[in-house]
Write a protein that binds this DNA or RNA. Sequence first.
DNA 1: CGAAGAATTGAAAGCCATCAACCGCCGTGG
DNA 2: CCACGGCGGTTGATGGCTTTCAATTCTTCG
Lengths: 245, 245
Amino acid sequence: MNLAMHKQASLNPLLWKLDAIADLSDQDKQAILDLPMSVKVFEADSDIVRDGDRPSECCLVLSGFTCRYKILSDGKRQIMGFYIPGDIPDLQSLHLKVMDHSIGALATSSIALIPHESLHAVLERHPGLDAVMWRDTLIDAAMFRAWMIGIGRRSAYQRIAHLLCELQMRLKAVGLAGENGYDLPVTQNELGDALGLSTVHVNRVLQDLRGEGLIVLRGGTLHIPDWEALQVAGDFDPAYLHLKR
Amino acid sequence: MNLAMHKQASLNPLLWKLDAIADLSDQDKQAILDLPMSVKVFEADSDIVRDGDRPSECCLVLSGFTCRYKILSDGKRQIMGFYIPGDIPDLQSLHLKVMDHSIGALATSSIALIPHESLHAVLERHPGLDAVMWRDTLIDAAMFRAWMIGIGRRSAYQRIAHLLCELQMRLKAVGLAGENGYDLPVTQNELGDALGLSTVHVNRVLQDLRGEGLIVLRGGTLHIPDWEALQVAGDFDPAYLHLKR
DNA sequence: CGAAGAATTGAAAGCCATCAACCGCCGTGG
DNA sequence: CCACGGCGGTTGATGGCTTTCAATTCTTCG
């Protein structure tokens, strides 16, 4: 990647993200940079795409923090994933016309909207990109599976540790985490909805993790004093993220 | 679909399945029928693909009953999905080189093995098929999400009802379920591993479901006396399966 | 008929949810 | 400048769904 492209990459977290999961040719990268998109800012707690929608564009997270969630008939919410800059949480809408869940902003987020037709056209002309995008949705599915395993078979303590590990890896891949910590603009209530736990229990387990010296979490900033130990506590194996390094 | 093709379709459950989730051209169908494949029979409780493998072929279920699962470091097993004739549980291996979980046979199953290179070649020449296959993996991901919601936010009673509903819909789509029931060659232990429940609790909840008159389950055969009621009990909405009808 | 696996039952314990209250921070407005 | 209001975080008590352990019955099949 030459200097000019590097500069553009910093403007486009999508390239950072794709670079972390696959090898892209320069033509493919340029094609991405040439994609038409309109940028829109979403306030915290607002919906970007709603359950039942038939989107005609995909949303690329440029900054902020978003999540995939669904509201059940009894009002409970299950968050199924957190999406950070570089992610396209509704890439699937390219091939699944009706949304079966919602995408929402947890913090103020700027979102690039890319028309389906533009994406389809680019993917058709760049088979390599098509493969990478497919791969991205497959990694998304792998994260669902990891999440499922956590909810199904791990204790609350392990689950939270695992989630914090996953975010560390993913945020670092797009340059948004340091070696041992990151900003986590997520409430304990939202963590609970993500992990299938009550807010109260999340609070208590976080205190346990703090007590063990595994995390320092204050004011939306997470510090991980001992990365190895946290991985062990969360039974975390990053293989499922399918990152290149 | 003309008569000749219909006949071949009965030989290839994959066509039935794809027909249920997308519109295929006759050329696309023929391309699928022309795929080279070798058939292999797997005994119950044997692995078809293993965690850590780097498959060079995809496995298409022709008959039997298989599942996707992962063993945790403490020995617990989480089953992440059941796969039935017409499904290609490791289609993802086309773009994710290393398996992050295993595929196993729950009942004796005949599996068609299709070389990656053949699939890649066909998908390249048939963009429509490429889209359908991508769509298939996206529906797989949607099932993970539905599963996750169940484990995270639904009671054991709802979860089991929901799973039985899902299988009814999917089996019917490939002609393996009647209007109100199907063969379910799955032990209560396996149901538990799928739903994040203990065997004992699965047993008790099944008795509850029987007591409510929602299911009749004996000797691996499930009968659903009141389909509507079971859907309500499981809070089941088939939208996530993205079936055409 | 015997053995192995699957289903079932009972009792006890534990993790986590629920309910309810209180604290602390921070932005707003008088 | 300080009171107010709201949200997020924290704490305590209680209860229930589910697990675990253990033992028994039922099924299937060689």
